[in-house]
Every structure is written in structure tokens, then in C-alpha cells.
């Protein structure tokens, strides 16, 4: 890793005043416009260290957010909402009783990425904002479109772990395992700006498709700090479930994952549905056709299968990842039934 200045921020506003840029911007300027001094923020530091060890990121200064108490807390709102500070670790979320009870898909998703050692350090904010794990993007020797190069190597290269939906220009899959669950649950995020003001947006609107901006995965503005993730109060009859399939049972990236949220009325008819696919597209991918197929119907095995078929109907697999479609189909049907039938 390169040498850098180390600073610990005691408060979010103090960190914002140090002029941090996003990791995407730091990577873009270091390869394109020498002369920009990049200050980046560190949460758990897992992705930051990974990028630095590969030589992909060479920040001049790192501002540590880890000691800021506000960012490390989970707080229950009076209205039944839940505010998760961006530096809460994945392990803390997976083990939190309220998360497990109310937002089951999130507890399931947070307990599975990487290894226990990593989940004890990796934060929810870092998980959402980490850079893609496409092996071409992570390779110093491949100057891909997302790094300012001329081509996406995945389309003609090795693409078995790449996107099967919405991959115009770049075939990365979004790296966050908690994002599909959080999007399905209707999470919002609180962003702190450099001037001290805060803005709230739906998490789903944060993510950028390659068509919108091929150099960034999210719409975080330079200087903005992700302060918290806010989960809405759960309405009666709402249940959620997360399913994933990897090549190994543990300690592996998913080849397919899905988070499902359904709201059932008393006779068991589905009134609201969210079906979000992960490891599927450059953003957490909303399977709208599957959601429409569920609404107004009882959550039977047949209806779950119909919705699962609808989820993959519009897919556009690459040369080496068509195998993902039956996997997604099976996971969607399974997640719908688990979500609907839990007590």
C-alpha cells in the first residue's frame, strides 16, 4: 500500500470539512488528472485496503470514521422505524434481535457475506458503497470502461459471474449482498453534505446503471457521507426472506441471490410485493414482472413458480452465465414461499 496521511474524525461534520471525495472519484482522478489530492473516508476499511493492496487506489489522506459514536449505533424510532448507523458492522446487524424479528431478509443477508472475521469489521455503509468485484475491474492490468478505458472485457471474456440483466456497457454485478434486502424493505438513507445539511433518499435511487454513469455505482456526491440507513416501520402482514446460491455453501460470493418482501392480508392474498435480485445486474435489480405476478393472488406454490418464471423472462445472459437463470428462478420461488409461510 502507498503511504498516506492518517486522520481520525471525531464527528461526521468534522470529517465532511476535510474535503473527502468518493472512492470512485479518487480512482478516476488518480488515473485521469494528476494533481488532485484525494482524501477518502474509511469505515471498516475492508474494501479500501483491498483496493489499495491491488494498487487500484492510492489516496493521499485517509479519514477514519470508526470513532464517530453516531455512526455506530442502531436506534429504534418512536414510529417503529429503525435507524442503522453506516458504521454498524454486518455481524452486529445479523445478530440484532429487532432486525431478525422485523427485517428478517436483512438479518439473513448480513450474516452471509465473506467470513465471520470480515463481517466483524465490515460495515453496512461500506457494504453498500464498495466498488465492484468484477475480476477485470479488480485487475490492474485491465483498463476497463469503468476505470476510464475503452472496453468492457466481460462481454468477450470470462463472464460466468457477471450480469444477466441491464448490462448496457458494463456487465458488473452489484457487489452488495445487503442492498437487495434493504431495497426490498424500502430502506432510505441519510447523507450528510459538506455544508452540514442532510438529505434523505430512497436507497434504490442511489444506485446508478452503467448508462447513467459508467464510472460510478452510486450517486453519492463528492463530500457526501452516508450517515445512516433507515428502515421503515413494518406494516402488519409484511414478511421478508433472503435466499442465495453460491458455488460453496459458505464464504463465497453468490452467483444468484434474491430478497422478497410480501404483504399478505388475512385470507393470505398478496397485496404488496418486492422482488429484488442480487448478483444479477449492475444495480440491485427489481423484478417488476414477478412483483406484478404476485399481487392480488394467494401465495401458493404455483403462483410463486409463475412469479419466478416472470422474474427471469426478460434476462439477457452473456456467453458464460446462462446457468444463472434457472438458479434465479428456483431462488425466487423459494424465497416467495418462505416469506409467505413464516410464522
Amino acid at each position: 500500500m502507498n503511504r498516506f496521511e492518517w486522520t481520525s474524525a471525531g464527528a461526521v461534520a468534522a470529517a465532511a470539512r476535510l474535503g473527502p471525495v468518493t472512492v470512485a472519484e479518487a480512482m478516476a482522478t488518480q488515473s485521469g488528472a494528476p494533481g488532485t489530492a484525494a482524501t477518502v473516508l474509511k469505515a471498516g476499511g475492508i474494501d479500501l485496503l483491498d483496493l489499495m493492496k491491488e494498487g487500484l487506489l492510492t489516496p493521499r489522506r485517509i479519514v477514519n470514521l470508526r470513532g464517530i459514536p453516531e455512526l455506530g449505533r442502531i436506534l429504534e424510532g418512536a414510529d417503529g422505524s429503525l435507524r442503522i448507523g453506516s458504521l454498524v458492522t454486518l455481524a452486529q446487524i445479523a445478530e440484532h434481535p429487532l432486525v431478525a424479528r422485523r427485517y428478517r431478509a436483512l438479518a439473513q443477508a448480513a450474516g452471509l457475506p465473506a467470513s465471520p472475521q470480515i463481517r466483524n469489521v465490515a460495515t453496512i455503509g461500506g457494504n453498500l458503497l464498495q466498488r465492484p468485484h468484477c475480476w477485470y475491474f479488480r485487475s490492474l492490468h485491465h483498463h476497463c470502461l469503468r476505470k476510464g478505458g475503452a472496453t468492457c472485457f466481460a462481454f468477450s471474456g470470462e463472464n460466468r459471474y457477471h450480469a444477466v440483466f441491464a448490462h448496457e456497457g458494463c456487465a458488473m454485478v452489484h457487489p452488495s449482498t445487503t442492498a437487495p434486502a434493504l431495497v426490498a424493505l424500502g430502506a432510505r438513507i441519510e447523507l450528510l453534505r459538506r455544508d452540514g445539511s442532510r438529505r434523505m433518499v430512497a436507497l434504490e435511487s442511489l444506485f446508478l446503471t452503467p448508462e447513467e454513469d459508467i464510472r460510478r455505482e452510486n450517486d453519492l456526491k463528492p463530500g457526501e457521507i452516508l450517515a445512516a440507513i433507515i428502515l421503515p416501520p413494518m406494516k402488519p402482514g409484511v414478511r421478508s426472506w433472503y435466499e442465495r446460491q453460491g458455488e460453496q455453501d459458505s464464504f463465497d460470493w453468490p452467483v444468484a441471490e434474491v430478497a422478497v418482501v410480501v404483504k399478505l392480508d388475512s385470507p393470505g392474498i398478496c397485496r404488496e410485493a418486492a422482488v429484488i435480485l442480487g448478483a444479477a445486474a449492475p444495480v440491485p435489480y427489481r423484478a417488476k414482472a414477478a412483483e406484478s405476478a404476485l399481487i392480488g393472488k394467494p401465495s401458493s406454490a404455483g403462483n410463486a413458480r409463475d412469479a419466478a418464471r416472470a422474474a427471469v423472462a426478460g434476462a439477457d445472459p452473456l456467453s458464460g452465465n446462462g446457468y444463472k437463470l434457472p438458479v434465479f428462478e428456483a431462488l425466487v420461488a423459494r424465497a416467495i414461499l418462505h416469506a409467505a409461510n413464516q410464522g
Binding site: E5, T7, Q30, P34, T36
Partner: peptide
């Protein structure tokens, strides 16, 4: 260190050479 990094194509800000190191290291 800075010139070495610049030679390998890694952006090193000219300003970085003059930055006061005292700004960093708080809490450490």
C-alpha cells in the same frame, strides 16, 4: 517517494509535497 510514484504513473499532487503533516495523525 513522491517522485517515484509519479514516475510510475500514479497521480501525486504537487500540493501534497507541501502539505503540513501536522494536520494528520489526530488521535493516533
Amino acid at each position: 517517494k513522491a517522485t517515484g510514484a509519479a514516475m510510475t504513473g500514479v497521480a501525486v499532487p504537487a500540493a501534497g509535497l507541501c502539505a503540513a503533516p501536522g494536520e494528520a495523525g489526530q488521535g493516533a
